[in-house]
Design a protein around this nucleic acid. Structure first.
Lengths: 221, 221, 221, 221
DNA sequence: CATGAATGAGCCTTCATTCAT
DNA sequence: CATGAATGAAGGCTCATTCAT
């Protein structure tokens, strides 16, 4: 009894093509809107291939989400490729830039951002695993940065609020694209625009965080 | 009983109940996931009622989206009930608070926020009308506020970026709830929490906007 | 208690418009394909008007068929407006010409031919009455003509066969139009073409009938 | 069991049974009147079988029409099994007899005639293909026969008219059955009756064609 | 192991008809 | 009397899944 699952290149290839095709289809149409037939056809596989390789549609989706997140974080790491010893300001910029690049990646890498956006609306069980491990790791990095920018001893709530303010600005442009595109049709997210965006979000956030760090009394200065 | 169309409470009641039921179902399951049968059953109407009153499922959805936005904006106006002559700071707080209340409304009013969130992922033709009129009106209000906070003559791009930074923080908590709830299960959006949130977003944004207003050279101070 | 059914001009008008609209719709789409809604809309009447005035869809159809036949036969009488004392040859030509004009009438009068053609495929109870009275009267006229052209004492079967040969040539061009139009797109049934057709059918039939009249032995001469 | 696709009688059996059942149902009720559910039930197949094998109802219908014509023409060829070198008179009789047998076939073969008759009333796209190839081939055969019976040089119009006169007599008995049966209930189309009919139509037509061939002046002789 | 055929539940829509006013 | 609202049955079609080979 051999181990065809490891030795058979055909089997592995079909599996991979299924994941690749499913990524695009799920990103385009969502879990419900995507059809197994469409995915299989685009993967050049049989209609029953999904059930055979992944048990069912949901099984395929879970794997697709995991794989796309993995690839995205590998290409654009959470820290943004900056040494851990860098200043908090530099690390914040790197974090924001990398995050933007991740969700605005193009081509096959664009699936990640769109899949995640869909999870925000129709969460599937697959999201739990992602949050428990991957997203929490990202959050920890940002927590460290924000903590360093706020005076020591600042309460957890303030840290959280500042983190949210930072992340929200990043995901906004991707998540609300339908409205943004309708209101500002001339806006495009080219790499240079993305860098300008990263600069703005960093600057805006630094000012906000520092103001929050000044305490409750100083609402105005 | 001369004017049954005005006196008869049953008259046109089916239509309204259809809209109410559809609001909940569309918000829960999305346009595709919602079934006409489910909606009609919950509205106590026949399966053919949707076709009769709204032409088809899409027609019902369009009306539902419009009505829910209308009700939300009536209950929590864009300006937040503050006089137009108030300070930009006060108007910003009112704008943010009202926006948060709108999308975090509970009960039947909760549909608005969830429907809009779904439009961000799977835009339907109904979104175009909403953006062209209602959302643009909101944006105009925020534009005026931000313009007043930035030095005169500031470029359009800066205004836009600041507006986005403000709005993003507002919608984030609603839009990314699946992740927020999983990471911070103890967090709840009670009215008092919402007020604290509005205070934070306002303070954070004011600091950010003012810093942007200081010009390009003063990235740090 | 007045007699609104006779005095009310509104009531009668709606009824007539219903019949007129239904004639066109039934002729275009057949009994099954026609929808009560479509008919009522075209007649400027309420959806329930059909059931109110004619009991149900079938009741309306029966009346429509009867009225259209009546109008057709009044406009183009079976005998073709020729005196009963005319020669058999002249009466045959008149019969054929009138028949052709009846089923090839244009405008509102075109319904008759198309409704009858549909009855040949999907007979409805309405056909029984038509055959029992109207069509039998037509057949009797043709019987008399053919009898006169055949030697006295000819069997019933021969008369029938010759009648069928005559009628078949008339209805063929109307009934098989879909094939005729596809095979000979340049063919059009203008009034002058119709006259030529009548001439041909008459001549062809006269020769055929006379040959049949010569008895069984003379298959060739 | 190496080649199940060839040996397994079940294989593709569903498809064939679908076509057989659909032939009967379409012939009985027409395209619109026939229901996919009814067809599938009679074929012992699932409701989705039609969609799977033929795409949709129309796809099934197209195939049904094609197959029934094919089978009819194979069983009763256009030339009627007579050598091409036979006399025009003999070939005309064979053509007419074969045509009559084709459209008056009984049992499963009866679908052909009824389907074609329905196409005359409600033509579907499937008719185009049939006319362009099959029916045109039939017409060519008849053209040759009629040409041979008419003096050389006769105009195209006369040939067409004579062809129409021949074909019309053939299809009449089938096409106008609802009226014929109501007027002559004792008439039945047994094989021997069909032969007598073929004889009559041939004789009638030969006389007609020859008279037409004598030119315009000799309307009477 | 991998596949093409087949399944059955379910969805949106249509339509003749009815009913209360 | 005449009407607009409402009904329920049914139809075509889709789709994830299963099964025998």
């Amino acid at each position: 009894m051999s181990t065809p699952s490891l030795l058979d290149p055909e089997r592995a290839a079909t599996r991979e093509q299924l994941i690749a095709a499913a990524g695009a289809v799920f990103a385009d149409s969502g879990f419900r809107g995507a059809t197994v037939r469409d995915i299989c056809q685009k993967a050049g596989a049989n209609v029953a291939a999904v059930n055979y390789h992944f048990g069912d549609k949901q099984g395929l989706y879970t794997e697709v989400l995991r794989r796309n997140y993995q690839r995205a974080i590998e290409r654009f790491p959470g820290a943004g490729g900056i040494p851990a010893g860098a200043s908090a300001e530099a690390r914040l910029l790197a974090f924001i830039r990398s995050f933007l690049q991740r969700i605005f990646a193009e081509g096959v890498d664009s699936c990640h951002g769109r899949l995640l956006a869909r999870e925000m609306i129709d969460p599937t069980p697959a999201l739990d695993a992602l949050v428990a491990v991957e997203i929490r790791a990202l959050a920890d990095q940002l927590t460290a940065i924000v903590r360093e920018l706020l005076p020591r001893g600042d309460d957890v709530a303030s840290v959280r609020l500042c983190m949210a303010s930072v992340v929200s600005q990043i995901v906004f442009y991707h998540h609300c694209q339908p409205v943004i595109r309708r209101m500002f049709p001339e806006l495009h997210f080219t790499p240079s625009n993305l860098e300008a965006l990263a600069q703005h979000v960093t600057r805006f956030s630094l000012a906000g965080i520092r103001d929050v760090g000044r305490g409750r009394t100083s609402k105005r200065h």
